[in-house]
Design a protein around this nucleic acid. Structure first.
Length: 476
RNA sequence: GGCGGCGUAGCCAAGUGGUAAGGCAACGGAUUGCAAAUCCGUCACUCCCCGGUUCGAUCCCGGGCGCCGCCUCCA
């Protein structure tokens, strides 16, 4: 068996084999660090984290690189007056920090949140600002080979006409872009579709010396330069949000392939946007939720992770609080399953355990190999859950076998099921005393008293479960 | 206007040319002092609509309707 992925460039699902056997070179377009990453950003982070983990479960070594875009880049963002203010500078003015301070602050925030959602560390997180020399070298090479030109004022543009394949990824053509009239038409450009590699601007907060004067790099060049530096001329997988396909990835392909003459990325994977209540997230509607908003509603980060990974990466997903409630139930169900899987020295082996585990292992991976069919993969986990819940007691051998399967599954889902299975520490002598008191009341058949204690504990978020093995409890 | 995606039970959501996985919710039952948890069972006969191809289509083709995204440096 092998993985199959949908490649945005060819618009078909193809069998995936990395260029170098056993090693996958993956580049993820990362965050622009000028504000808080929101749940939409997190969806793509979780998707690519699951992809990376799935590839690892499949036996590959994954070299994952994610860029941090800490150079501002021209945009009007929410600024009404189209003055072309830099995002980083806009944020800086708002928060009275300089552009570098903003980048540092939100980079740290990004990593904090990412870790909360158990998104594993990539091999490297190269910062754009730390790779200006590489970008300049890349641009110089493009100028030398005739793919880029310098204007009289010292701006450098990529000449789209020198790269016939431009537009293949997005389905746009240079002619249609001309008609669009939405792109910047500047006299100094040879073709309206030409895009900036270097902008000269000595008023920009972030600026560097270059052969063309002090200025800053165009947005697209950082990924081409950094991907090449860390992973080489050809990537196996390049990912991003659906919005990145054009213009960003289109431009990356042009810049990289014009330079190397080699395929830049063998597979392009794009996630669809996360909608909120059926609509695109919007700052003005207050639907750009961040992790703290989710936690404030009482949902744990691992529930958010489960929710975000529970839909196919290439399908639009609609974020609602009800959906998170349903996700909570699913996670609780998994937790309940794993807590049952404890070795019992006197229990006999149950052949059903081996059968169910083998099936779950097989079905889970096979589903992921099929263009990350997460729904089918989760169905396999639910099937395992049902089978495990029917086992009355696990022999040490069965428990070990079951945990092997659970660990493999959780190596991809990342829900921390090992931790969920650990006996919880009451940490509160008063609570334990109440449970003891309730047990005494039950023994004395004073059920009114027993139920009152249970109700009081529930009010504190503690649920009691009377089992043949004694009273168990968990937090809501 | 150009490009692309989607429309499956109350909700989320797989999937196949031969009559619809899974989850959540709901309901019935077992179990329980009562609960919780767990187990068993029930829950789509227009898979948006209309045509066509076919022995047969939810899945293929054509046409609609509806929703969404990109073309604006938002993942």
């Amino acid at each position: 068996m092998s993985f199959r992925f949908h490649d945005s460039l060819t618009r078909e699902v193809r069998t995936f084999e990395p260029a170098e056997p056993g090693v996958v070179r993956m580049y993820n377009c990362g965050p622009t660090v000028y504000s808080h990453v929101h749940v939409g950003n997190l969806r793509s982070n979780v998707c690519w984290d699951v992809l990376r983990r799935a590839l690892e479960l499949g036996g590959y070594r994954v070299r994952q690189i994610m860029n941090i875009t800490d150079v501002g880049h021209l945009t009007v963002d929410d600024v009404a007056d189209a003055a072309g203010e830099d995002k980083m500078e806009f944020a800086a003015r708002r928060e009275q920090l300089d552009a570098w301070g903003i980048a540092a602050k939100y980079t740290a925030y990004f990593h904090d949140v990412r870790r909360k959602l158990n998104v594993r560390d990539a091999e490297q997180y190269p910062h754009a600002t730390a790779h200006i020399p590489e970008m300049i070298a890349h641009i110089e090479e493009l100028i030398r080979s005739g793919h880029a030109y310098v204007t009289p004022v010292g701006n450098v543009y990529f000449a789209v006409s020198t790269f016939p394949a431009y537009g293949r990824l997005s389905g746009n053509t240079v002619e249609e872009l001309d008609a669009g009239a939405r792109i910047e038409v500047l006299e100094e450009k040879r073709d309206p579709a030409d895009f900036a590699l270097w902008k000269r601007d000595d008023k920009h907060q972030m600026q560097w010396d270059s052969p063309w004067g002090r200025g800053f790099p165009g947005w697209h060049i950082e990924c081409s330069a950094m991907a090449r530096k860390y992973l080489g001329d050809t990537l196996d997988i390049h990912t991003g949000g659906e919005d990145n396909a054009f213009p960003h990835h289109e431009c990356e392909i042009a810049q990289s392939e014009a330079l190397t003459g080699r395929t830049f990325a063998r597979f392009w994977l794009h996630t669809r946007f996360l909608l909120v209540d059926g609509q695109k997230m919007s700052k003005s509607k207050g639907t750009m939720y961040v992790v703290e908003d989710v936690e404030a509603r009482g949902f744990a980060p691992r529930v958010l992770r489960y929710y975000l990974l529970s839909a196919h990466y290439r399908a639009p997903m609609n974020f609602t609080w009800d959906a998170l409630t349903a996700a909570t139930e699913s996670v609780r169900g998994f937790d309940a399953m794993v807590r049952r899987v404890t070795p019992d020295a006197v229990a006999p082996n149950d052949p059903a355990v081996a059968v169910a585990c083998a099936k779950a292992d097989k079905d889970f991976l096979a589903a992921l190999e099929d263009d990350l069919n997460i729904s089918a993969a989760l169905a396999a986990v639910h099937e395992l859950r049902g089978a495990m819940n029917k086992v009355s007691a696990f022999s040490p051998a069965d428990a070990a076998r079951a945990w092997g399967t659970i660990d493999r599954i959780d190596s991809v889902l990342g829900l921390g099921l090992r931790d969920a299975a650990k006996p919880q520490d009451l940490g509160d002598a008063d609570v334990q005393r109440l449970i003891d008191e309730r047990n005494a009341a039950r023994k004395a058949r004073d059920f009114a008293r027993a139920d009152q204690i249970r109700k009081d504990l529930l009010a504190k978020g503690i649920v009691l479960e009377d089992t043949p093995q004694g009273v168990k409890w968990r937090r809501v």
